[in-house]
Amino acid sequence: MNTFWTIFGMAALTYLTKALVLMLGERVTFSPGLRTALEFVPVTVLTAIITPMVLAPHGGAAELNWRNPQLVASLCAILVSALTRHMLLTIVVALGVFFAWQYGMA
């Protein structure tokens, strides 16, 4: 199997995971139990993606201290978001704190 066909297969399988459920469209209906489960997908998956990036930004061991700019800026972002629920403000404050912390400490 050459590289081209390996990539082709990767593309087909990736597309299958993304589009199969969408293609079923109106033919599929979810049970109430499944619907309840799907309600929790966004908060769990997004939190699961970012938590390791924040707690261990260099991979490996956790960096649970104030020298970790990802952690400090994330805590600020959580606070701002909880208080204001304003998306853009949260992002701007988080990025501001992050870069100030990262380059201020260097």
């Binding site: 990036m53 978001s81 909880a82 998306m87 988080a94 990025l95 992050f98």
Partner: peptide, 13 residues
């Protein structure tokens, strides 16, 4: 970190 910030802004509310 821009992605982290956006995901927090989406999840917390």
């Amino acid at each position: 970190f821009a992605m982290v910030a956006t995901f927090i802004a989406i999840v917390v509310p």
